[in-house]
Amino acid sequence: MSTVVLLSTRRLPPTYFDQVREDLGDQNITIDVVGWVAPSAWVADKVNTFTLIGPGRMPAQPAPEPEPVAEASEEAPDAVIAPEAVADPDTVVADEAKIAPAASEVAAATGAADAASTTAGAAAASPPPPAAAKPRPTGAKRVVKAVEWRARRARKVAGRMLPKAIKTSAPVKFLRGQRATSDLGKTYWERVLSRRDVMATIDKADVVVALDAGAIWAGWNLGQRKASTPVVLGLPAARREFDQLKAPAGNG
């Protein structure tokens, strides 16, 4: 069974690995991933290993679907009333006479509680006293604050002086993107090189594939270190390498 190690600095969905197997022409291929960013969802059933070397956490395993619960019948059995549960009319009249004074007492207590609640609400609605003013910095702190303020103002003025058409132009965006990619590529390679588990996984690979621009620098360095293992950019080049591995010896 062939093994491929994918180097990636982008977020990959689980369906991407199905596409990898299809593009490489082998559904039984073993896939190990060294990712800077965690996948978008659970991938343990799609790859052999996914080693996250960047920030963040791996997605949690989805919870199993709950089993269906049988619905209870809405029909209730006929209620049976015991004869002794039915009150005598004379008893009901006597109870009503006892309840009337108690109800008047409850109403008086409720009115007093409402009045107290209204007074408390009016007190809460009054605005709190204003907070004391923050003391201004003095001495060395005042000098530091003044320097920071002037630096921020200088940056704002410099940004306004540069025309918006230049800041948003394609060449400037390209240069910014290249710089960000270069910084990420170097950081990614340093992290790969410092992880023994990652290097051990790469040592077992038949082909190593750098999937994006952020992983190119790591792929190039691995190609210099491991001349016996093909290190390529993109899946089409990986497919050619796997086809050569499967070809009978002597067919060139």
Rank of each mutant, 00 (worst) to 15 (best):
A79V: 08
D23L: 03
G56E: 05
M199P: 01
V43T: 03
G177R: 09
S228Q: 15
L245M: 07
A72P: 08
V231L: 00
L235K: 01
V80W: 05
L233M: 11
V80G: 06
L193G: 08
P55V: 11
L175Q: 07
V92E: 09
G35H: 00
R239M: 07
L233C: 05
K164Q: 08
L184I: 05
N28K: 08
V92R: 07
A79I: 13
G250F: 07
K226E: 04
K156C: 10
A94E: 10
A210N: 02
A38L: 03
K226R: 09
A124V: 14
A76E: 12
A38C: 04
S2F: 09
D32V: 12
E241C: 04
P64S: 01
Q19R: 15
D88V: 04
R240K: 14
P66C: 04
A97L: 09
R57C: 06
T118Y: 11
P83F: 10
A132V: 06
I216M: 13
A218D: 02
Q178L: 12
A170F: 15
A108M: 09
D23C: 03
E96P: 06
A120Q: 15
G234F: 03
G214N: 00
R196V: 10
Q27N: 12
M58N: 02
M161C: 14
P248L: 02
A87R: 12
R10H: 14
D243H: 15
R225K: 11
A113V: 13
A170S: 09
D45K: 05
S194Q: 10
D23W: 03
V147R: 05
K204R: 06
T181K: 03
V43S: 02
E74Y: 06
G111A: 12
T49F: 07
W42E: 02
V147T: 13
A94C: 07
A205W: 00
A63C: 07
I31N: 00
V192D: 00
